[in-house]
Amino acid sequence: MDFISILSIFVMACFVGYYVVWSVTPALHTPLMAVTNAISSVIIVGALIAAAASGSSGSKLLGLAAVALASVNIFGGFAVTARMLAMYKKKER
């Protein structure tokens, strides 16, 4: 992909983000932060590439460390979001 295609995706995604986030109800802003935290750990993709590649042991070690850090975030972020969301209940009628 060339730079312009990537930039286009990025700019469009910023607009999508703007509208989607404004539609989030304020009552769920804390779960929103927890889940954005979890999904921003998609940088684990980069960490996996580094950890799997041969050629530089330094790069591999950094990659493995980043995989571990991002995993804390991914598992912790989704789990804590699920835990919070499970508490939101409607009035019993």
């Binding site: 580094a50 050629g55 790069s59 950094l62 980043a66 850090l69």
Partner: peptide, 20 residues
């Protein structure tokens, strides 16, 4: 943790650009 992971990935890419 996200921040630190980004730093590590950036450095890893610097050290092994071919892999990336």
């Amino acid at each position: 943790l996200v921040g630190l992971a980004a730093v590590l990935v950036g450095w890893a890419a610097y050290l092994n650009p071919a892999a990336f």
